[in-house]
Amino acid sequence: MSIGLTVNGRDVALNADPVTPLLDVLRNYLDLKGTRYGCGLEQCGTCMVLIDGEAAYSCAREIGSVAGCSVVTIEGLGTPQHPHRLQTAFLEEQAGQCGYCLSGIIISAKALLDRNPAPSRADIVAALDKHLCRCGTHTRIIAAVQKAALMGEVA
């Protein structure tokens, strides 16, 4: 059976088993590799996407449950040629070591800035607390989100 949804603004119809994890659909059916597998248990945040504007785990989310929804992945935010201000801010702050956590974190930061364009440090920490970063880049990541928020004010 066909499941219809919007991914990064594009309508897609998928012939997928409805219990297939959204993460697998994004990575293997749609070749969107920026959404990453970390645990499959909704514990680390590397698989975070926007579902109808809200940050949501994709690793245990069945594709059947997002039929008709709008899904945005890191590829939907910006590209290396035309980066989103969050991506620009992360590069300017060099807010990464291995970088595996970053796409999920930027997704949660996007959801935060959309609902709160001028977040406090505590707001940012609260929004990112479900994400793990093993390299210990936390302080730079927080600084990058703060910078992106300021770039938004100017824009």
Partner: peptide, 15 residues
Amino acid sequence: LIAKVSGAAFIHDIV
């Protein structure tokens, strides 16, 4: 870092 904040970047992503 640019690839790591925008899409495929890791061994996991090789097709």
